[in-house]
């Protein structure tokens, strides 16, 4: 696992891609920070939460090549024909991407120090946001890696993970929209069902969908209220995608088409 991790992590810095991603992230986080600094009130939590919305772009970019490039160049054969488990390969690449995100996050640490020096608030809620940031990153990187293993084209992989992450980011909105439109549809003229029953049933469904929203689950962390269940949710979601990735790679061995 460590061999793959080392290669993938340093390969970000062998080409300009890693540096450009770092520069972009520094610029964006700097912009968010300076805006707050200029207004005289700095909430690192809201900076981190704003940065989270860039996941939809950052994570596809840093994960798209992880398996797609190996497939394209034929180097994936190394993982199959050398004495190591494919799951170790998946984990190695996963931690490489996570580490790159960690390096990017050093910017925010610098912002925290500046805030603290200026007698601003770096409280438990800030650290809660940091924890949530990384657990969401874990989930999304796993998704990105899965997308990368499905295809040998970096572009297709990036688009796939972009779409999945976008859907997850919009889950709450989608479920609200869907439930209101479905309930009005069902209780409308065509079906003329009992409005109360319909709305109850639809609410259950939309609650079920909302249950899958990692953002809603983790929103209390920024207020310093830490809960284990949402973290378990993110980790287990990541585990499922990593395992699926492993299975997709393994499939290549026995697939007959």
């Amino acid at each position: 696992m460590f061999a793959v991790y080392k290669r993938e992590f340093f390969s970000y810095f062998r080409s300009p891609v890693g540096y450009i991603a770092l520069a972009l992230f520094s610029f964006l986080s700097g912009l968010l920070f300076i805006n707050q600094f200029g207004s005289g009130a700095i909430s690192i939590s809201s900076e981190i939460i704003s940065l989270r919305s860039f996941f939809v772009v950052i994570i596809p970019v840093i994960t798209m090549g992880l398996f797609a490039e190996d497939k394209k160049r034929g180097t994936e054969i190394l993982f199959y024909t050398n004495p190591l488990s494919l799951f170790d390969v998946v984990l190695g690449k996963f931690f490489a991407a996570l580490s790159l995100l960690g390096v990017m996050f050093l910017n925010v640490i610098v912002h925290m120090i500046i805030t603290a020096v200026n007698k601003g608030v770096v409280d438990i809620g800030t650290w809660g946001s940091v924890i949530v940031y990384f657990f969401l990153a874990i989930l999304f990187i796993a998704i990105g890696i899965f997308a990368s293993a499905l295809t040998d084209s970096q572009i297709i992989s990036a688009i796939l993970s972009f779409i999945i992450i976008l859907i997850i980011q919009l889950i709450s909105t989608i479920s609200t929209l869907a439930s209101s439109s479905v309930s009005s549809f069902l209780s409308g003229k065509m079906f003329s069902m009992d409005a109360e029953k319909v709305s109850k049933a639809v609410e259950k469904v939309s609650n079920g969908i909302k249950w899958l929203d990692p953002f809603a689950k983790t929103q209390d962390f920024r207020y310093g209220i830490f809960s284990v269940a949402p973290l378990v949710f993110c980790l287990s979601g990541a585990l499922i995608f990593l395992y699926l990735t492993y299975r997709v790679l393994e499939k290549k061995r026995w697939a007959q088409n």
């Binding site: 300009p16 540096y19 450009i20 770092l22 520069a23 972009l24 610029f27 700097g30 912009l31």
Partner: peptide, 17 residues
């Protein structure tokens, strides 16, 4: 934060490349 640090990364990247 918005010029020197990003620029440092870009320059390092260019040099390495």
């Amino acid at each position: 934060l918005m010029v020197i640090i990003p620029l440092a990364f870009v320059i390092t990247g260019t040099i390495v490349y």
